[in-house]
């Protein structure tokens, strides 16, 4: 009720034009704390989202490392320092399932032209990453270059290790696609079948633990082909490293924004999210990091060459599957157990 009247008050203020922000019931914070992944992502967040947010609201964003377990610890302890956090879409589903998040006030955000799956009761997707079929061009000739997971699985097609993330998530999906499961029939995942499919590569896999490591394995030729996130390869590829990839049979993952339950400045976090979903800011983010906007209008603001690199460009997005975070949130523990046992076998 209070927030409603406050919003109508704000609207009245905006309508009046030059009126200064009216004094509202609660003092506006001069900063909010957002947990981010660091590195290149932080720079892009800062330039594309946090700076415009500061210009618009006068509130600065203080960044801190997004340790997933810390969010749970803070919510459990009832002492939440963060106002928002960037995490993977799968992780957002896990938080959501464990009731660790504030519900979103979607009435504050224009939902037109958002990618399906973006709007969730207590999180939003902000950009889309593609997990792709990738290969080392000096180890795999142009003719043998894999275009599907089945071709990655084909050990006669080209020699050398195949690389995957040392986690069941995305690895199982790739294994099932390789085994001939139709993309729209992936979920619920057939874990036994995925492991059987992985059996065929036993002894030929290099596992990566971090995105940086995946790029290293592929560029150095330690692995000939395999799975990597497009953002890790786009830079090296443009700089002439012997790597290439295709969006064909890609797995789409998301960066999500969540608000921890009990966050002190929820309203300001929602305002930040509105700024993050603004088409122009989405486009500015996509110019810095090759992760696709979730707002279709943002796509129109990109140069054709840049647009073609975006996982969410329609011609790319139609060739892959969105990873189902909900399935993983429900089945992650069992899947991890089976995956770890398989690793030891």
């Amino acid at each position: 009720m209070i927030s409603l009247s406050r919003r109508s008050l704000l609207k009245a203020g905006a309508a009046a034009g030059a009126l200064a922000m009216p004094a509202v019931a609660r003092a506006k914070p001069d900063h909010i704390v957002v947990a981010t992944p660091g590195g290149v992502m932080d720079d892009a967040f800062e330039a594309a989202y946090f700076a415009p947010f500061k210009a618009k609201t006068g509130i600065s964003v203080v960044k801190t490392t997004n340790q997933y377990a810390k969010l749970k610890a803070m919510v459990d302890a009832g002492s939440v320092e963060w106002d928002a956090m960037d995490c993977s879409g799968e992780q957002a589903a896990v938080f959501s399932q464990q009731n660790l998040l504030e519900p979103f006030d979607w009435s504050m955000i224009d939902q037109n032209g958002l990618l399906p799956g973006t709007v969730n009761p207590n999180f939003t997707l902000v950009d889309i990453v593609a997990g792709v079929v990738a290969w080392n061009t000096s180890r795999v000739g142009a003719a043998a270059a894999p275009k599907t997971w089945a071709e990655v699985w084909d050990l006669k097609r080209f020699q050398g290790d195949r690389m995957f993330w040392k986690k069941p998530s995305q690895t199982f999906e790739a294994a099932l696609l390789a085994d001939g499961v139709a993309p729209d029939k992936l979920y619920p995942l057939d874990v036994a079948r995925a492991l059987k499919s992985l059996d065929k590569l036993k002894g030929h896999i290099s596992w990566w633990e971090s995105g940086a490591q995946s790029a290293q394995l592929l560029i150095d030729g330690e692995a000939a082909a395999g799975y990597a996130w497009n953002g890790r390869l786009a830079g090296p590829k443009a700089n002439g490293a012997p790597v290439d990839f295709t969006f064909n049979q890609a797995m789409f993952l998301a960066d999500a924004i969540v608000i921890p339950r009990g966050a002190k400045n929820k309203r300001e976090s929602m305002e930040l999210i509105a700024v993050m979903l603004d088409p122009e800011n989405q486009a500015n983010f996509a110019k810095r990091v090759p992760y696709g906007p979730v707002r279709s209008k943002a796509m129109d603001l990109l140069e054709p060459a840049r647009r073609a690199m975006m996982p969410t460009a329609p011609e790319n997005f139609s060739r892959g599957t969105l990873v189902n975070g909900e399935w993983w949130a429900k089945n992650g523990v069992d899947a991890a157990e089976k995956f770890n046992s398989w690793m030891l076998s």
């Binding site: 340790q67 997933y68 377990a69 749970k72 938080f95 464990q98 992650g332 523990v333 770890n340």
Partner: peptide, 12 residues
């Protein structure tokens, strides 16, 4: 394994 359970799966 402990890290996986604590951080990825939040299965404390």
């Amino acid at each position: 394994l402990i890290e996986q359970q604590a951080v990825d799966l939040l299965n404390w």
